[in-house]
Design a protein around this nucleic acid. Structure first.
Lengths: 165, 165
DNA sequence: TATTGTTATACTCTATAACTATA
DNA sequence: TATAGTTATAGAGTATAACAATA
């Protein structure tokens, strides 16, 4: 819900609207950012799932189980995702000597090139969203977004300082 | 990309970082909002696609073609989506007298109840994201998000005042 | 026995192409 | 002919359950 242009809190008319503009604004802002990512991914003929995978592998070489955790997928879903990415030459499975059952997933050179390209495009696209803001407002928005993200991460017990595991 | 907790612009070290914090902040904020929606949808045993459908139908009774346009799907994809939603008793196809080929899609009573429930939960969840902010900061964030959304909509030629068509 | 990862299976979601019915 | 919608088909993405190999 609220992923298109609709307004999840509109037209309820219950109380003195508490954070009506806030919720709508955040939902629609989120949709706009997602749209940028989706467009960039589609431009490289990638699904959102594959794009997310590349993003996660940008600074990690996780095991399948860790990868599934990072993407919040079942391990069997991760198997399929990696199979398809491997077929496209974007990632590799590399044996880990310590454990004969496990291996690490990492980007190939081709995968890394593509990942950096996409990251650049996403950065440009997202930055372009704020074209209409003054530099001061952009700073303010960055600050507020950062605080929300940190607060949320803390609230759900995620340590942000440990992103490169 | 950037849909998880990663940082699409981190560790490039090219220039005096322009909007590094801004882009990362927005991408991660977007991910947090999407996660709220996804959690709420999953709680009602709905896919994101079905949740988006309900959101779009909240204040519209579009034709299939219009619906496909709103969801940015192929018309055949819309057919399947509506088929499944109809099977679950959430939406109905209603003949339009003026054109024997066409009809309108609308929420059933059950679908509307569920939609309003989900909208409430999403609103609460998204509002909770900003728990850590002062009231003044929440207002500021709402204002900035709104400006970005309007600017983006304008940039891609969308009229925001016509959401209830 | 427990863990790591894959396979088998079944759905949902999506697009392309071909089709039907109506305009 | 053109438009509205469906059907046929194919592939990606996802989950559950059962499995094999290793620890």
């Amino acid at each position: 819900m609220g992923v298109q242009g609709e307004s999840p809190t509109t037209s309820r008319g219950v109380q003195p609207p508490p954070n009506l503009g806030l919720v709508d604004g955040l939902v629609q802002l989120s949709a706009a950012v997602q749209a940028v990512v989706a467009r960039v991914a589609a431009g490289a003929d990638l699904s959102m799932a594959q794009a997310r995978l590349l993003g996660v592998l940008r600074d990690r070489q996780p095991s399948m189980a860790q990868l599934a955790g990072l993407l919040e997928l079942d391990k069997s879903s991760a198997t399929g995702l990696i199979d398809r990415a491997e077929r496209r030459g974007l990632v590799r499975r590399v044996d880990v000597p310590e454990d004969g059952r496990s291996f690490r997933v990492l980007l190939t050179a081709k995968g890394r090139r593509l990942t950096e390209e996409l990251a650049d495009e996403v950065a440009r696209g997202v930055a372009a969203l704020t074209d209409g803001l003054s530099e001061a407002d952009r700073r303010k928005l960055a600050h507020l977004a950062g605080r929300v993200v940190v607060h949320d991460a803390t609230a759900r017990g995620i340590d942000l300082s440990t992103s490169t595991n």
